[in-house]
């Protein structure tokens, strides 16, 4: 057992046989590791892979009653309908714009926030802030939309009431197309930046404190410490999250967009998710819904694989 970890010696047999044998040896060596992975792998097989047959209904006119085997195959018909839809470009533009604004402004927010919190010395204060700022995460979008309407409404909204109190003109926050995307991003930051700090704070707490001591010895300023110690210390987690986020570029959070969007801002608020809700889900058209979903997934996969490759080129571990 103790010796197994040592390198396995190649023998004199022909190469392919050697490789086989070497692999078997490695697998045997790591048998406990594989055993450890078994429950998890079994979970993914059972609950994630077995239902995957559901994806093929994207190529059918699926009727649950006759089942997947007896439903008609229609090839790429649903995809053709989706791509030839005259609004496809607008849907794509809106989806990408909202996604990238989130990536640009919402994604870094919890990182910055957790670094700031890490610098707070007063333990009680720190814990208090932590608990408070993660509260909005627990509010559903319905409630948040409700609060937003109270704050931003035109006739009685708090902000507009204050504006008119000072004799300024009211701003149509909720019906203005140009303010819609920034509003979504701000809402996201407000709702989930605090919650996002949980994972980064955990990562920061794993950083070896001697590194900070060493940096101080070298006379590094606070900002330099953050740059050279904290950030690299959590870089791994940031990278994993970022790559996974890229897989979601086609998902923009249906509930939020659906609740905040209105006919007044439809030209910027109609995204793939709202489109498929309208044309697939509401109608009980499972196959059309599935085909749009599949399209989104494939784009996500390409994004993730691309990002992963890029990360590797820069010498990072990446996802896999």
């Amino acid at each position: 057992m103790k010796k197994v970890l040592a390198a396995v010696n190649p023998g004199n047999e022909n190469p392919s046989q050697t490789r086989m044998r070497r692999r078997m040896k490695i697998i045997f060596r790591d048998r406990y590791l594989y055993l450890l992975a078994l429950p998890g792998l079994f979970f993914f097989l059972l609950f994630k892979y077995i239902p995957m047959w559901g994806l093929v209904i994207a190529f059918q006119n699926y009727s649950p009653y006759v089942g997947i085997l007896n439903s008609d195959w229609v090839g790429l018909e649903h995809f053709a309908r989706f791509f030839s839809n005259s609004d496809f470009y607008i849907l794509l533009r809106n989806t990408l714009a909202i996604s990238f604004m989130n990536l640009l402004f919402f994604f870094p927010a919890p990182i910055i926030l957790s670094i700031m919190m890490n610098e707070v010395r007063q333990v009680v204060l720190k814990r208090l802030i932590q608990t408070v700022i993660y509260f909005p995460h627990f509010l559903s979008w319905v409630i948040i939309a409700g609060i937003s309407f109270i704050m931003l409404g035109q006739s009685e909204g708090v902000i507009n009431s204050i504006l008119s109190l000072f004799g300024m003109e009211k701003i149509p926050f909720l019906t203005s197309s140009s303010l819609f995307w920034p509003m979504l991003t701000l809402q996201n930051i407000w709702k989930d930046a605090g919650w996002g700090t949980v994972i980064f704070l955990a990562a920061i707490s794993g950083i070896d404190p001697t590194l900070y001591e060493a940096a101080k010895m070298d006379g590094a300023s606070k900002l330099k410490q953050i740059w050279h110690v904290t950030l690299p210390g959590i870089g791994n987690v940031i990278l994993v999250l970022l790559i996974l986020k890229l897989g979601d570029v086609m998902d923009v959070g249906f509930e939020q967009v659906f609740l905040m969007g209105s006919a007044a801002v439809s030209n910027v608020a109609d995204v793939f998710d709202t489109y498929v809700y309208r044309n697939g889900v509401l109608n009980g058209e499972f196959s059309y819904t599935a085909s749009v979903g599949l399209f989104k997934s494939i784009v996500g996969l390409i994004m993730v694989m691309g990002a992963n490759k890029l990360a590797k080129m820069f010498g990072q571990d990446g996802l896999y």
């Binding site: 692999r23 490695i26 697998i27 790591d30 590791l33 594989y34 992975a37 792998l41 993914f44 059972l46 609950f47 994630k48 892979y49 077995i50 239902p51 995957m52 047959w53 559901g54 994806l55 209904i57 649950p64 996974l244 897989g247 499972f286 819904t289 599935a290 979903g293 599949l294 997934s297 996500g300 996969l301 993730v304 996802l319 896999y320």
Partner: peptide
């Protein structure tokens, strides 16, 4: 050092991106 690590990770990644919908899950 785990043999097959990369392929397993890739397979798990796919489960993040692809969603088969509620009917297959319900039937399972």
């Amino acid at each position: 050092r785990l043999l097959g690590r990369k392929i397993i990770l890739l397979l798990i990644l796919i489960t993040i991106l692809f969603h088969p919908g509620i009917i297959p899950n319900y039937l399972l």
